[in-house]
């Protein structure tokens, strides 16, 4: 059931409750809350209008262009949130890792699972890419942050391995394993409890807009598989590609990648 903008504006009234609570305890979060709510509203309005046009034209190149824009934004957000230095090598590495992660997943699920005649159909390609991308962003942040910060913290361990005849790949193996474990764990945990603890947002949205729950869970199962596979692939690629630049030809770690306060 559709509802009007006027009705939506009533929804904002509920903010009085959290605002009062946050104010009473002098959390200093009121300004932050105001900014967050305004940003959320404007960004979603923008995306809504944009997608409306994207869906209306439904042009393969336009859709692909939008996906590229999303990947680029995710790329920069990943690097900033992982507290690593934003240099061009890292931007390049994470771009490739994110883009490939999304591409493999899109092609597999849209071409071979849903079997769309054109996988760049806006109605499918944009939301699925968005879901996978958002999760890639979170996992990549955990993955590369864990990887580079633990190497920085345990440089003598890495050097001990190098000084005892390891190749760079061999010496990085325990750091790589640790980063993969940490980044894959949250997705695995949410897969294991999904449906019991909370109803996933996408499924809820589909049901609210009139789909049968059976269709909704089919999509939800597909999207969970897509998210998990896409994130692991992209964390793997992000570390493999970026480490080619972060270590020099003497296998020494470029500490400047890690931002210290």
């Amino acid at each position: 059931m559709n509802f009007t903008w006027g009705q939506l504006s009533i929804a904002f009234v509920i903010l009085i409750i959290p605002a009062l609570i946050l104010w009473k305890f002098k959390t200093g979060l009121l300004t932050k809350m105001g900014i967050a709510v305004v940003r959320m509203t404007i960004q979603l309005l923008f995306v809504g209008y944009y997608l409306e046009y994207l869906f209306r034209y439904d042009n393969t190149w336009l859709n692909l262009g939008w996906i590229l824009v999303m990947v680029i934004v995710a790329d920069f957000a990943t690097i900033d949130r992982s507290e690593l230095k934003r240099n061009r090598y890292l931007i390049f590495s994470i771009f490739i890792a994110t883009f490939l992660g999304v591409l493999v997943i899109d092609v597999f699920f849209l071409k071979f699972v849903i079997q769309l005649p054109n996988i760049m159909t806006a109605q499918y390609a944009i939301p699925i890419t968005g879901m996978v991308l958002g999760n890639c962003l979170q996992s990549n942040v955990i993955g590369i942050n864990t990887f580079y910060y633990s190497i920085d913290q345990h440089q003598e361990r890495y050097r001990f391995f190098i000084a005892n005849g390891s190749t760079q790949e061999e010496a990085l193996f325990p750091f790589f394993r640790n980063a993969l474990k940490k980044s894959a764990n949250p997705t695995l945990a949410s897969m294991a409890t999904i449906g019991l603890v909370s109803l996933p947002g996408m499924m809820t949205g589909q049901i609210l807009s009139g789909s049968s729950p059976f269709i909704a869970i089919k999509y939800q199962i597909m999207i969970m598989l897509a998210i998990f596979s896409g994130t692991v692939l992209s964390v793997y690629l992000g570390i493999v590609i970026s480490s080619k630049f972060v270590f020099n030809e003497r296998n020494n770690f470029d500490k400047t990648i890690v931002k210290k306060d």
Binding site: R157, R159, F160, A163, G165, E249, R250
Partner: peptide, 22 residues
């Protein structure tokens, strides 16, 4: 140079004062 360094590292073992194996 890097190539010769790799050859050397395959021949070495280094025992630091504060060993860290993980």
């Amino acid at each position: 140079e890097p190539f010769q360094l790799q050859l050397l590292r395959k021949e070495t073992t280094w025992v630091p004062q504060d060993l860290d194996l993980g």
